[in-house]
């Protein structure tokens, strides 16, 4: 028996909107630790890793580990029917073939339940080792989204370079080139507007902007985004989910020839 009650149901709505276009089907894993998902896009270039820790739920019951295969597009459709202030409860029976999403309005005057069929998914799980990253950039998530969107109007790929001077986002296309440099900025009034660059070694990597733009659909989840870079490693773009966990996107770099 599984029963997860999330007072801030909008978090789950936002998570689904962030990942549904990147991954079609995925297994949600439920354990004492929390509600999690790891899935790759169909071309095995990008990976989504979600964790919602059990402590973040108002009620969390998971009698035994359960893996539930879901079509993320269909799950997103159902969660879209929840109000932004609704409390969302996810329910499933051990060995059952469906999952129920229950939506309660804040004053309990509307209660809806949506039942969705589960599916069998053969998913490959990748082991992601803890790594020391050569450069970690923390910046406003809206700024990161703006940069990716702007650069994708010029080119298909972005070169992200971190040096002592700052972080540079560059692209090149048929009409010309673009370079955007952000310097460290901790002197802002609000911490969510800061840009913080931690660099061990200068690093420069190339990525497909199509994927970066897809990741930025998670912007409503967090005011800041963390971009972790190391040569020879996929970049990690992380959105923290308040008090609960994270949504991380891994993207394999392109090889310059």
């Amino acid at each position: 028996m599984l029963e997860l009650r999330l007072v801030q149901g909008s978090l789950l709505k936002k998570v689904m909107e962030s990942i549904k276009d990147l991954v079609n089907d995925a297994n949600f894993d439920c354990s004492a630790t929390g509600f999690s998902l790891q899935a790759m896009d169909s071309s095995h270039v990008a990976l989504v890793s979600l964790l919602l820790r059990s402590e973040g739920f108002e009620h969390y019951r998971c009698d035994r580990n359960l893996s539930m295969g879901m079509n993320l597009g269909n799950m997103a459709k159902m969660l879209k029917c929840a109000g932004n202030d609704d409390i969302v409860t996810v329910k499933a029976d051990d060995g059952g073939d469906c999952v129920t999403f229950m939506f309660e309005s804040p004053n309990q005057d509307k209660i809806a339940d949506f039942e969705m069929k589960l599916m069998d998914i053969d998913s490959e799980h990748l082991g992601i080792p803890e790594a020391e990253y050569e450069a970690i950039v923390r910046m406003p998530s809206a700024e990161f989204a703006r940069i990716c969107k702007d650069l994708s109007t010029i080119g298909d790929t972005v070169v992200i370079s971190v040096t002592k001077e700052g972080v540079k986002f560059s692209t090149r296309g048929d009409i010309g080139t673009a370079n955007i440099v952000l310097r460290q900025n901790t002197s802002v009034d609000k911490p969510e507007e800061a840009t913080i660059i931690e660099m061990e070694t200068p690093v420069s990597l190339t990525f497909a902007l199509r994927y970066m733009n897809s990741f930025t659909k998670a912007t409503p989840l967090a005011s800041q985004v963390t971009v972790s870079l190391s040569s020879e490693l996929p970049v990690v773009v992380e959105y923290k989910i308040a008090e609960m966990g994270y949504l991380r996107f891994y993207l394999a770099p392109k090889i310059e020839e």
Partner: peptide, 14 residues
């Protein structure tokens, strides 16, 4: 010219 790496080049299946 650039070509796209896949994730399996970095992370091993478990």
């Amino acid at each position: 010219k650039s070509s796209q790496n896949r994730l399996e080049s970095f992370f091993k299946p478990v």
